[in-house]
């Protein structure tokens, strides 16, 4: 499992704009780089990242080979209700990693 660092405010006021940051460890191998023997290193990247707030998708991003290693995504949303934010990364080989963070909205 890749390590992920996610920053979600633990508590927020209803209607407040909150910033969410997600960083995941991934080499984002572009498929264009040769290794020491001169052969191309096979492509291995995260294809999509999405975030759902209480099950409803609020953010989605497609990644491409030019995205740097350990992709970092920062976005904002409106704090509407208490619950969980779930973050999903899908690699181009079909591997999926999901992390969740709770949020309390008053």
């Amino acid at each position: 499992m890749a390590r992920a660092l996610i920053n979600v405010p633990k508590a927020a006021k209803r209607g407040e704009v909150i910033e969410i940051r997600a960083l995941i460890s991934h080499p984002m191998e572009s498929g264009f780089r040769p290794d020491e023997s001169g052969k191309l290193v096979p492509r291995s990247i995260i294809k999509t990242f999405s975030c759902a707030y209480n099950g409803e998708e609020i953010f989605r991003a497609d990644f491409f080979p030019a995205v740097a290693a350990n992709p970092f995504v920062s976005f904002t949303t409106l704090a509407s209700a208490s619950g969980t934010l779930s973050f999903t990364w899908v690699s181009d080989t079909g591997e999926t990693q999901t992390e969740t963070r709770p949020i309390t909205v008053e």
Binding site: R3, L5, N7, L23, S25, A69, N70
Partner: peptide, 13 residues
């Protein structure tokens, strides 16, 4: 910022 610093991934490891 510890949540933006990719070196923290290594520390977590």
């Amino acid at each position: 910022d510890d949540t933006a610093n990719p070196g923290m991934l290594t520390v977590l490891e």
